[in-house]
Design a protein around this nucleic acid. Structure first.
Length: 574
RNA sequence: CGGGGUGUGGCGCAGUUUGGUAGCGCACCUGGUUUGGGACCAGGGGGUCGCAGGUUCGAAUCCUGUCGCCCCGACCA
């Protein structure tokens, strides 16, 4: 039988489905995308999308597009390949690490593969927006990015090549940027809501390589997430662990005399506390890093029960830091480093605010196999300033309302930044204001990874058999199973319904004549919200069965009411 | 980049310890019987065992090197 839309026939759909879990996949979305014939890996972190995934991705893109247009976005398309000069202008050609893929063209010119497009956006906008009359404006694109991630993982959750919506807004005042930033934030929530993703939280985040002063990440809360989120259940405080702050409970000890204690082979806080029979919070911990810029060691003292947050430390030092592993030639007594009488040369020393005012602490004596007890910070140490470099733990107090903080995991499904003038200034973008004066515009940028969002939609909407696609992103809305294809009457009915329904919906027809179990299993993996099951049993009575993928509806309906029944069922599912 | 694991047909695996020229299940093709949760019978196609060297009469198997992939960590809009 010749049909024009054969690609919606399951017999023609490219991509085999299989029942065994691929050995390399661990995340639900990854497993179902492989098993359901949605994606195939080409290389580490590089995937091809098969028709069902391509269709779902297009639907997500369309939702994003509508919401971006809704906040006055103008869609554009920047190149994937950019000349290095553009990135040299902004300074990022040197400042960004090896995740930026650099190469030379045939003429030997340095090129990069776009991993984000601030430079391209400014390059375009600086020549097209020379008067305040154009402002504010936002341009966005939906396009391929390449980031040479050190470690791709989890199928589409973390990849090297991916499709992203990235948007750039330009403003004539900070207030205007902030107002627009809020509109974008609202638009993002509408996008996640429409795509069927629940449990998304906007949190304060580190600005990382993007720079700028304020940033939020949108986190889909999930056990398997890579990011750690700190939030207060009582007030609005929500933050990425990287920049989270808290109020810690102060110990209120009495001052004591400093005494030296013999502590053979006791090199960590846990053992020290046990040996001295005190709490870990009654000790002082020394953590040693070295700076990337001048390779100088940095000793950070924190209260013994806390950890150092390297992102905070990096921000304070203004350079990357790495935990020190090679102790050779360093003027420190490892395992016994203490703040009292520390006379190390060429070593930078920092104190976390957790130590402020603490009394009667145990710490290293800067002498192998000895510690000191009775050290009081104010009495015994000369501290110019305390910095906040400690990692927040669950249960510590919220700095805003004092309630206990909670910690959970999440996957970043979007982010927004107030960039300020970092790019417009370095790349010389100016416009003329009402008074005829040249001004530098203020910029914001806003990203959403399409594939990652798609994967999260599965993470958030599935059962043990496969995805339960929300109708807004489902590759196919209606899936017709023909259980007794050999019965001409049933077979004909399948084609008839297929022809009818595809006028209104994305329909896929299982025309393979496979066993019922095979058809159902494949339908589960393809996850269409509504399934129509045709069988000789019911066709004989002029009936078909309609079930929804979420199993909430399962009913027999007369053949001639199928259109209404499908519409009604779709009305009821998410 | 550090630590660990693993590479045998599209997917899942056995065979490697003790060398003898590759096998199982699923999937695929043909014919037939089936048809409401991955059916059955019969026949069939597909793998230079990641790659390169070496040892050996002979290597999936032993040795050396190398690459890919996965996990943990580091890193990351």
């Amino acid at each position: 039988m010749e049909r024009s839309t054969q690609y919606m026939l399951l017999s023609k759909l490219l991509g085999d489905r299989f029942k065994e879990k691929p050995a390399d996949a661990f995340m639900i979305s990854h497993i179902f995308m492989l098993r359901g014939g949605y994606i195939r890996q080409v290389s580490n972190g590089i995937f091809s999308l098969l028709p069902p995934a391509a269709k779902a991705a297009q639907k997500i893109e369309q939702i994003i597009r509508e919401e971006m247009d809704n906040i006055d976005g103008q869609e554009v398309l920047f190149p994937v390949v950019l000349p290095a000069e553009l990135w040299q202008e902004s300074g990022r050609f040197d400042s960004v690490g090896s995740e930026l893929l650099r190469f030379k063209d045939r003429g030997g010119r340095d090129m990069v593969l776009g991993m984000t497009h601030e430079e391209a956006a400014v390059h375009l906008a600086r020549n097209e927006a020379k008067t305040y009359l154009k402002y504010p404006f936002m341009i966005y694109q939906i396009q391929t990015k390449f980031r040479d991630e050190p470690r791709a993982r989890g199928g589409l959750i973390r990849v090297r090549e991916f499709t992203m919506k990235d948007a750039y807004s330009f403003h004539t005042s900070q207030e205007d940027l902030e107002a627009y930033y809020q509109r974008t934030l609202d638009a993002y929530f509408r996008i996640y809501h429409r795509a069927g993703l629940k449990n998304v939280m906007a949190i304060q985040s580190d600005t990382g390589m993007m720079g700028g002063r304020k940033a939020h990440e949108f986190m889909y809360l999930s056990e398997g997430g890579e990011d750690t989120i700190v939030f207060c259940e009582n007030c609005d405080y929500k933050s990425n662990m990287e920049v989270a702050v808290s109020k810690i409970h102060k110990e209120s000890a009495q001052e004591q005399e400093i005494q030296e204690v013999h502590t053979p082979d006791i090199k960590d806080i846990e053992k020290l506390a046990e040996f001295l029979n005190i709490k870990e919070s009654q000790t002082m911990k020394a953590t040693v890093f070295f700076r990337r810029d001048n390779e100088q060691p940095v000793v950070v003292f924190v209260r013994g029960d806390l950890q150092v947050n390297e992102v905070k430390l990096r921000k304070i030092l203004g350079t990357e830091v790495f935990p020190l592993v090679d102790y050779d030639g360093i003027d420190l007594c490892f395992g016994f480093i203490g703040a009292y009488n520390l006379n190390a040369k060429n070593v930078q020393v920092m104190y976390d605010k957790s130590l402020e005012g603490e009394k009667n602490l145990a710490c290293g004596a800067n002498k192998t196999d000895y510690h000191l007890v009775g050290v009081s910070v104010e009495r015994d140490l000369k501290v110019d300033r305390f910095v906040d470099v400690a990692k927040v733990s669950e249960g510590e107090a919220c700095v805003h309302c004092g309630s206990p903080l909670k910690v959970s995991r999440g996957i970043e499904v979007g982010n927004i930044f107030q960039l300020g003038t970092k790019y417009t200034e370095s790349m010389n973008m100016q416009y003329m204001d009402e008074d005829g004066k040249l001004q530098t515009p203020i910029m914001g940028c806003y990203g959403i990874g399409v594939g990652r969002l798609l994967a999260c939609v599965i993470e958030d909407n599935h059962d043990e058999y496969g995805p339960i696609w929300p109708k807004a992103v489902a590759p196919y809305l209606v899936h017709i199973c023909v259980l007794n294809q050999s019965q001409e009457e049933v077979n004909q009915l399948g084609w008839q319904l297929y022809d009818e329904l595809r006028e209104d919906y994305d329909v896929i027809l299982d025309d393979r004549g496979a066993a019922a179990g095979v058809q159902f299993a494949d339908a589960d993996l393809l996850g269409a919200p509504v399934r129509i099951i045709l069988s000789k049993r019911n066709a004989g009575n002029g009936q078909v069965e309609i079930v929804t993928r979420d199993k909430k509806i399962k009913k027999l309906v007369p053949v001639d009411t199928v259109r209404q029944e499908v519409a009604a069922a779709l009305e009821q599912v998410k």
